[in-house]
Design a protein around this nucleic acid. Structure first.
Lengths: 120, 120
DNA sequence: TCTTAATATGAACAAGTGTTCAAATGAACG
DNA sequence: CGTTCATTTGAACACTTGTTCATATTAAGA
């Protein structure tokens, strides 16, 4: 009988048809899933994680970050660009310096959850 | 005088020396930062976000996922491998089927925080 | 044991990413 | 203005990543 069913690509799916419907009904759209992946992608590099951790402690200029990270200002700037694009950081100019800080508190909570997962 | 200072690569750093020290003192180690980045990297793909969202609603076998995602079982399996490696999902075998589910509740909370950031 | 279904794995390739180097802004100051 | 310093940007390159295709596994039935 499962042979006649239009959903018979996989036998096992027949075991939870109601589950599948619920999953599909409550699934965010393609766009939202992509936005989420892009957010995580911005967080998926050690250098950027390092930068965000530093900024979670204090507002810092690029040259402060170059010393903390021990990297070229060019490399740091490229990564800050990524973080800016994901709205994870904001900045203000003060003379020749540009000071960066976390955009909002969500980022910090995100890190706390991630930390809890890493510890185990 | 800042010219004689050993920390004079950047003038501005002198403005918050105490901040810098605090940042460096409270910074997690290289290993932890890498682990965090790796965790986010596992979440940084739309297909994997899609899978995790589905699994957050119900325990599902690979063939269920192939239909939800409309992808080949090979592609799905490759991504599940990544999620397994990051301990984001666990699985149990039942006959010919392998059922996957979220490894713990942290993942769900992580997504909630991420969702809040995406909405703005 | 032979077949079939579900899942996993390996190789290969295109597409994407992070760093470096060189060059370009932008702002202060003589 | 011209110089200097902090930061940004663009091009180039090595390296990584996600998919596809073909080939294993693994389990259930005949």
């Amino acid at each position: 009988m499962s042979k006649q069913d239009p959903y018979d690509v996989c036998q096992e799916r027949m075991v939870h048809p109601e589950s599948l419907e619920q999953v599909l009904r409550e699934m965010p759209g393609y766009r939202v899933l992509g936005d989420l992946a892009d957010l995580f992608k911005a967080l998926s590099d050690r250098t950027r994680v390092h930068i965000l951790f530093a900024l979670s402690k204090a507002e810092l200029c690029v040259c402060d970050l170059t010393e903390i990270l021990n990297m070229s200002s060019s490399a740091v700037s490229h990564q800050l660009r990524v973080l800016r694009a994901s709205k994870l950081v904001t900045f203000r100019r003060e003379g020749k310096n540009v000071f960066y800080r976390l955009a909002d508190a969500h980022v910090q909570k995100l890190f706390e959850q991630a930390m809890e997962h890493v510890r185990e």
